[in-house]
Amino acid sequence: MIEPFTVPFLGRALAELVLLAVICGPISVFVLARGLSFVADALTHTVFPGVVLGVVAGGLDGLFAGALVAGLVTAVLLTVLTRGARLSDDAATAVVLTAMFSIGVVLVSRRSSYTADLTSFLFGRLLTVTPRHLAETAVLVVVILVGLLVAVRALLFRSFDPAGAAAAGLRIGRLDLWLNVLLALVVVAAVRAVGTILVLALLIIPAAAARMVTDRLVVMALLGTVLVVVAGYAGLLLSWTASVRYGLASTSGSSVVLLLVLSYLILIPVRLWRGRTRR
């Protein structure tokens, strides 16, 4: 069970997933608490043109910078658009999402290696993670964790009771921007490994699954992280075994996500059972 991971590229893939798990557990708690699934979806899509531009400008190393710029721009844009209350959150988000994604498709379709590029942007390249990628991810993980920790209490208050938080003197706009930026950074950290589409699963499923078994936010965050680690390990093992032993090609990123979804489905009955016995 351990042996496949002694192969360097598989070991690095697992290390990358463990790093991502550390942030995806906690951040997904806030995505769930604030009902930001759609915003998270928008971020994953708007990072796409950034990724394409980054690669066009600087090759695969430019991907990271491109994603970073696009993610931060979106975070600011979404905060400003939804703040004026002129547009509903959903409408504003949808406008940004579709516009940016279209730009990305236009950009990528101009490249000669169109299909291959599109696939790797959308679904990631988990097995080609390099030590340098790992280091970059680790730095982002630390930044995001610190960013979450300093604001966790205020973010929690704002999520639970926006009017009460504003009445207590918390700056709602600043907090929303903060969380959106952190969310963007998570997407940037994860996008190279799992792609712009599958990263959404890491932002939503961990806490949603953990919510089935616990009402405590800290436990939700920790359990979410554990779920990603387990799904990451099992998913890599599965795709490795499938291709090495049985010659079945199965992309590792999607295997991981599928197992994460599976954990969610398995935990649904727990929720139903708890609902019946809850005082």
Partner: peptide, 28 residues
């Protein structure tokens, strides 16, 4: 606020809610 305006499903303990009353002193 009116309790009806808050999400009763939000995973937060009674104690955590009351502690929010101290956030002005505590800051972020």
């Amino acid at each position: 606020p009116q309790t009806g305006t808050l999400d009763a499903d939000f995973p937060v303990s009674v104690r955590q809610v009351v502690m929010m009353g101290r956030y002005r002193e505590l800051g972020w």
